[in-house]
Design a protein around this nucleic acid. Structure first.
Lengths: 231, 231
DNA sequence: CGCTAGCTTGAATGACGTCAAAGCGAGTGG
DNA sequence: CCACTCGCTTTGACGTCATTCAAGCTAGCG
């Protein structure tokens, strides 16, 4: 009955509507619970699309999601990768200004936007939570602006360290995303990403055991390159 | 009694504390009023500094303010210019992550942060307003990330059009800020800004009647260059 | 074993930054 | 009123770094 038509960009929402499993009370963040259902997405499956009505808010249960903007010239700016416990789909307007896709097999908690909005109108704690989430997103986006002025190798070092702190161990990290994804996130080309990874390996900062698995060999070198802004 | 020591970065706040003029009820945004006092700032005078306790929230009454980050290597990333009716100094943390300075002679409405926070705890409408302001800031910051992938001339065309829509007329705009400010906002050097302005003049998109006054000669050319992202 | 998609590597191009010098304009003092 | 000066701006020559174009390579899979 439900054919594979994720490219149309609506099927996933029909699937959510058709999901008759009982919503469970789940935390969006911090305090307060809201009913939510769990949905599964295959790699590269669309979650929502730019310009579509913003009916749901999402929280990653497992897997990874990318949110991105498609530019006029066909290029793609990846806004953020969302890992377990991250909330996304929370915006100001009634329509999405970004698109979202699963990077790998992913499970999401799906909240009705109307329920969250209603909760925020009656309950200042919920409104504060939304403010806090948006504020944190703003901080990360500002950091991205600052990063975008730095060199390719610095951006990549910073990216690997951040990724490691989210989904890696002390000594290594598995890249859930392709070189294309990394390039579109950092504002580089896949060739440059590849070259800089090779360069990081050449200076013994990392080892690429496979194309998707990175071992941190010298965190200090990475940290110096990542060189966070300060006053 | 109060010596000129704005470089220390505290004098301005002492001045606010010492201001015994009766606070008037003022709108932060939309609905709801909060007591505020008016403060005047000279060109380049500091409003607050990175790392300082975040005691106030500001709204521009007249003039222009720049908020910026100082990077480890001494470079400066201007985060935003704030024009009349813009609110700034609203962040997530208890300390400022940005610095703020007047670009030109400026008057600000100064609100106590504690009053605003208290209002937001008891009054969901105020909390919603803060959320809306932060959301709008986030949108602008995202647009900056997207812009930072584009060429120098495109960034500049986009900047001039945005500036024109805020403080210009149909046909012209006065630049309140220096080439340094523009460069640090767009992530370019002053030389490149200057070259691109000359280039825009060469292709008859604008005319620079003085270094600070720009006449729009062909808005279409600017718009095509500015070429907003779309899906 | 060969195919394909994703990744890596190389060489040439181009955009912006850097360094250097000259131009311009507003304020100052003669 | 004019010459001088200082800071900002413009312009030029050149270097650097990321992109582009073009092969090759590798790993997963039929």
């Amino acid at each position: 009955m439900l054919t594979a038509c994720s490219t149309i960009g609506v099927a996933h929402e029909e699937r959510i509507d058709a999901c008759h499993s009982a919503p469970r009370s789940e935390q969006l963040s911090g305090t307060g619970t809201v009913p939510a259902v769990v949905m599964s997405y295959a790699a590269d499956e669309r979650v929502f699309g730019q310009g579509m009505p913003r009916r749901f808010v999402y929280k990653v249960k497992s897997g990874v999601v990318r949110t991105f903007t498609l530019l006029g010239d066909g290029r793609r700016q990846i806004d953020a990768f969302h890992f377990p416990d991250d909330v996304f789909g929370l915006e100001l307007n009634d329509d999405h200004s970004l698109s979202a896709e699963a990077v790998a097999a992913t499970q999401l908690l799906v909240f009705q936007r109307s329920l969250i909005d209603r909760a925020a109108e009656n309950n200042c704690a919920m409104a504060q939570e939304l403010l806090s989430l948006t504020g944190r997103t703003l901080e990360r986006t500002r950091a991205q602006v600052v990063l975008s002025r730095r060199s390719a190798i610095e951006r990549l070092a910073n990216f690997l360290l951040n990724l490691g702190s989210r989904v890696g161990t002390e000594t290594s990290v598995d890249l859930p995303m392709s070189r294309y994804d990394i390039a579109d996130y950092l504002g580089l080309t896949i060739e440059t990403v590849s070259r800089m990874l090779s360069e990081l390996e050449r200076i013994d900062a990392i080892v690429l055991t496979t194309t998707r698995h990175i071992v941190f060999r010298d965190r200090v070198k990475l940290t110096v390159l990542s060189n966070p802004p300060m006053g």
